[in-house]
Amino acid sequence: MVSVALKREKVVVALKTNDKVWDYGSLFYGGASLLLIIFGWQVVAWAVDWWRGVPFPTPFETGWKLLKMLAGEQFLGHSIYLHTLSSIGRWLSGFSIAVFSGALIGMAAGRWRTFERLTMPSIQVLQLIPGLAWIPVAILLFGISDGATLFMIAVTAFAPIAINVAGGVKRVDEMYIRAARMLGLNNRMLFRTVLLPGALPHILSGLRVGLGSSWRVLVAAEMVVGSGTGLGYAIIQSRWTLDFAKSFVCIAIICGIGLIVERVIFIPLEKRTIELWGLRREV
């Protein structure tokens, strides 16, 4: 073996990836920006109280209400857990449909020019339609039911996912595809080992956009076609119950879930893939 004769280079490879989700810097600034929001909120609450004479829930009242609701206080006949879980359940089913169909169509459009020219113009148009504009379509198709909510979530998240996946696959360097062909990879292996990981930065950014817009449309859809449970339904019902602190709790939970998804799913996923591979992140 040649290697025995050759001088062996010692190569120290330092994995620079930082597996911690929180570091002290981001923790500090995160806390500071939270304090800033709470302060602003408090000022608005005081101002509204003084100026218009209506009780505007303060951060303290909302926090206290959150604790009481977590401890079991009911809202519209259900616990806050049920409202949250039914919203998450709806969102998960709708978003899964969007991810599956968006990824499939995006991949195909990124790879085959004819398919792209056939599908992409209508998907681009789809992206221009605001999520709430789908309400009449959803109700006509599915009636006032969960089906309508799922449809709205799926159709809103679908376009950004499909567009980003297609863009990502298209932008995979032609040299990688040539190398894969030269190595003898068949179509299935090409997709799995080259196109999919190569497009990942774009795919993740598509999922982010899709996630945000579908979460927003979920809350809105629940307000309109809600069926007795869900955070959006709970918020809109506070119009009648005049229990505004509870609806503020729901808003805080919506923000919290978004933050958790970002911190627990997206950032670790990026660290394990894009950063580890030295790829550029697509924002």
Partner: peptide, 20 residues
Amino acid sequence: NRPDPERAVVFQEATLFPWM
């Protein structure tokens, strides 16, 4: 008429797949 592992290519810039 098409690429084949019998005729292997080393490109000008290493086209190792960054994700592996």
